[in-house]
Measured scan of single mutants.
Amino acid sequence: MSIQHFRVALIPFFAAFCLPVFAHPETLVKVKDAEDQLGARVGYIELDLNSGKILESFRPEERFPMMSTFKVLLCGAVLSRVDAGQEQLGRRIHYSQNDLVEYSPVTEKHLTDGMTVRELCSAAITMSDNTAANLLLTTIGGPKELTAFLHNMGDHVTRLDRWEPELNEAIPNDERDTTMPAAMATTLRKLLTGELLTLASRQQLIDWMEADKVAGPLLRSALPAGWFIADKSGAGERGSRGIIAALGPDGKPSRIVVIYTTGSQATMDERNRQIAEIGASLIKHW
């Protein structure tokens, strides 16, 4: 067993022997301040990774656009098919120029040779490549099948209805392509620590998230040296922004954090800054 596999296998073990965790309302004060600064709703939840206990939450059962955070769930569904012998990570998928959609920095470079399922998941999570996500959605049967996968996990809230990039439209009061912070946090925890996926697939999923290259201005910008984070960000229309993450000190994750916002007129930089400040408060009061 590799060191990384050992780390993920012992996530519940280490967490069980940690000192009790206590909620700190100071972080919620910052979440509410972010709402004021952005002029928009902000949803927040913080779960203990081992027990699933909610440590703090704000608007945990209000719907927010998922945006690209759905790509972690998508690759979880792909990995479940791999575990069941219905898919192979090494299978190569070929596609054409007509398949390319807006923001496809990886797939646009491989029109000639195609990409493997493993490479597509890596591109979808680490670079948020939209064509990679659409190609992977095709392998599982489309958005409705991802929703069905989530329902089978016990998540009857999260739903995907459309493809990239239309799913980022974020129309107010439109339930399409949305989740709730509580539902997303619980589902992410199941994917990373539950028995739904094999140990190898859980490790692969967290490795992809740990290698995320496009979430630097968010929670990662607030992390002290030595902290662990595996995350996936999302951005959408109407001032929408979000991030889902597993993080913790001492090089291992111990909490799940989900943050979503929508309806702001603020710039992307300002949305990023507010999420980073929430992260800084979380870490300060850990």
Score class of each variant (00 low, 15 high):
93 I>D: 04
156 H>C: 11
100 L>F: 08
239 G>Y: 02
119 E>F: 01
205 L>S: 00
80 S>A: 14
195 E>P: 15
100 L>A: 05
155 D>R: 01
101 V>S: 08
202 R>K: 13
209 M>F: 00
85 G>L: 09
109 K>W: 10
207 D>C: 13
145 E>T: 11
71 K>N: 00
214 V>A: 08
176 R>G: 06
95 Y>F: 13
38 L>F: 09
148 A>S: 12
142 G>E: 06
148 A>W: 11
182 A>T: 13
168 N>P: 01
163 W>V: 10
101 V>W: 04
226 G>V: 04
180 M>I: 10
225 A>W: 10
70 F>G: 07
147 T>E: 08
98 N>R: 14
117 V>P: 05
194 G>Q: 12
232 K>T: 01
50 N>W: 12
139 T>K: 07
66 M>H: 05
227 W>Y: 05
246 A>S: 10
188 L>E: 00
136 L>N: 01
150 L>T: 09
88 Q>G: 11
91 R>D: 07
241 R>G: 06
102 E>Q: 15
204 Q>E: 12
31 V>S: 02
190 K>A: 15
206 I>M: 13
96 S>Y: 11
229 I>E: 02
90 G>P: 08
86 Q>S: 15
33 D>G: 10
169 E>I: 10
137 L>F: 08
214 V>D: 02
251 G>E: 14
57 S>T: 11
194 G>M: 11
85 G>H: 12
135 L>W: 01
162 R>Q: 08
170 A>F: 09
284 K>C: 08
125 I>G: 00
72 V>C: 07
183 A>S: 14
286 W>D: 02
34 A>T: 09
52 G>A: 07
85 G>P: 01
258 V>N: 04
30 K>G: 04
78 V>M: 09
280 A>W: 13
216 G>A: 09
100 L>D: 02
234 G>I: 02
216 G>M: 09
266 A>M: 15
117 V>R: 02
75 C>K: 01
87 E>V: 10
162 R>F: 03
266 A>H: 14
140 I>T: 07
236 G>Y: 02
98 N>P: 13
126 T>P: 01
124 A>P: 03
117 V>I: 15
153 M>Y: 08
131 T>C: 09
171 I>H: 15
41 R>T: 09
71 K>S: 00
211 A>H: 15
230 A>E: 01
59 R>M: 03
261 T>G: 04
237 E>L: 14
26 E>P: 09
244 I>N: 00
45 I>L: 15
196 L>K: 15
